[in-house]
Amino acid sequence: MAPQPDIVAELYRHSLPRLGAYAYLLTGSHADAEELVQAAIVKVCARPRRLTNLPQAESYVRAAVRTMHIDGLRRQSRWLRAVPKLARPDAVAGPADDVTEADAVGSAMATLAPRVRAVVAMYYWEDLSVADIAAALDLSEGTVKGYLQDGRRALATLLGEDDGGERSAVMEVRS
């Protein structure tokens, strides 16, 4: 059963900022987030299911964004990252990426490893439980808690959340 055409239009009119935010949290790249959101909308809306309202459709697309990103991480780790001798894809950042990483949150998020970043995004943006995240990533709950702790430490310290102060980010450059 195909979704109502107006649901597709509503997704494009009203849901893109929230979906784009989630995709950016996961990927850290404008170009990747753009492609992820577009692909997720196509995937969900092409499925034979009835989408009756916008919140329902948006939740499906949000889940598709998550699963497609996780699939991408797994594929990367299988072929490109498993063997250190292989060249890795040289992702070309859009001009906006340089600008956005200049702020404190962007700098903090940029320090996180891809899986830590995914866990933080799923926990804080999608409000998934540790158990749900563990199932989605095929990890133990302990590992997810570890990633979450890593992410919290990095972000909270940089953003001054641990003491409420306005601590500014300090960068160390290896020469």
């Binding site: 597709v8 239009a9 494009y12 893109l16 900022p17 929230r18 979906l19 784009g20 935010a21 989630y22 995709a23 950016y24 949290l25 404008h30 987030a33 753009e34 959101v37 577009q38 909308i41 196509v42 906006a96 956005t100 702020d103 949150v105 962007g106 998020m109 933080v120 804080y124 943006w125 919290r152 972000l155 909270a156 953003l159 959340e161 409420g164």
Partner: peptide, 29 residues
């Protein structure tokens, strides 16, 4: 506070992503 910071920051980035994806609605349909 961390959650609020993340949400505010992500929504700003999301708006930029949305502007580009919206241009691709025809291709998506």
């Amino acid at each position: 506070g961390l959650r609020d910071n993340l949400e505010e920051w992500a929504l700003a980035r999301g708006s930029e992503v949305a502007a580009v994806v919206a241009e691709r609605e025809v291709a998506g349909r």
